[in-house]
Nucleic acid binder design. Structure first.
Lengths: 175, 175
DNA sequence: CCGGAATGTCAAAATATTAGACACAATGCT
DNA sequence: AGCATTGTGTCTAATATTTTGACATTCCGG
């Protein structure tokens, strides 16, 4: 069931890119790869991407990940709703945490486990779509409660922990 | 996975009782049967029963189901939280509806489909346990939203459709 | 070190919820 | 048929919550 759209993968290691492409075609309609983050903003302006998988270490020898963080922020600045998942080398958890604080959706360490990666990406995208507002959650719960009580509003209100009158008000607002 | 506890089945037809017992041992730890509702209240006082499956037509020739309704009400009077599922002959939907109004959790018509029966009973018991109050649902949703935003309360509040200050208040009350 | 963004907190105004009450309809019981 | 019970729909006044707007502070990136 490929319903997760397009993913953009950015890594400067061609071998990793190939491996990821192979692994990710299972769940994504399309896998776009970039071996450098340079053109990412332009590309995001042209393509509709559902998720970005971003490697953190590009500058060879410079492993503080500043580059990756900078790119992460640049992406999030122009596309605040686009989830970005980070890849960091094993042991660079502190870098990943800084990434999370800068708005990354999640991170994974290399070497990675394919199943875990896919699971995390799915979690991110699934969470992405349920932007349910408090009112919506409340409305849905109310509907179900009333349904379960066969329309008995008094009982439903009791189970919901509110007064019958308040339930009336909420129903009125919902309709 | 038998985690549904004990079910009490009441029907005056021994053959049906046997068939039901066979079918229900799949999902229940224990299946108690009664061929008459006479001793039901006493039994319920002794045993911990998770659900009652009650036939509606006991008085032979008298098919208005008044007996069944009376017993249903007696059970619900003494055990308001105990779900009761009704069995009625095909075509006696109006009787079942009256049963629902008297607090039955659901009903099924004879002859029944085993899979449908099991599904309905599971639905009833699953719904039974989630007596989640509105506040609880709200709290859970808030926790998840904050989690998803990595602790960014401003963002979480926006997604929840409330103000940041209100989110503070709610968090304060939760802790 | 500066600037922007999020935090923690406050007070007043606008809203929502509660408790208590009432008339009324539906239903069970005798 | 008559009475008791239970839920409905609606109303108030008292309480509680949410919003709005504000302010000083802290955190963090550049």
């Amino acid at each position: 069931m490929k319903t997760y759209g397009t993913i953009l993968v950015i890594d400067d290691n061609e071998a990793i890119l190939t491996a990821l492409k192979y692994c990710l075609t299972e769940m994504f309609d399309r896998v776009i790869t970039l071996s450098s983050p340079e053109g990412v903003l332009k590309l995001l302006g042209q393509e509709t991407v559902a998720l970005v998988l971003l490697d953190m270490n590009f500058s060879i020898g410079v492993n503080d990940g500043q580059d990756g963080l900078t790119w992460l922020r640049a992406i999030r600045k122009h596309h605040p709703d686009l989830p970005v998942v980070l890849m960091t080398a094993y042991g660079e958890v502190s870098l990943a945490v800084r990434g999370l604080k800068s708005g990354a959706a999640d991170f994974i360490t290399k070497p990675w486990d394919n199943d875990e990666l896919v699971r995390k990406l799915k979690d991110v995208l699934d969470a992405q779509q349920d932007v349910a507002t408090l009112d919506e959650v409340e409305a849905e719960h109310i509907r179900r409660a009333i349904d379960r009580c066969h329309g008995n509003l008094k009982l439903a209100a009791e189970q919901l922990g509110i007064t019958r009158q308040t339930l009336y008000n909420k129903i009125k607002k919902l309709s």
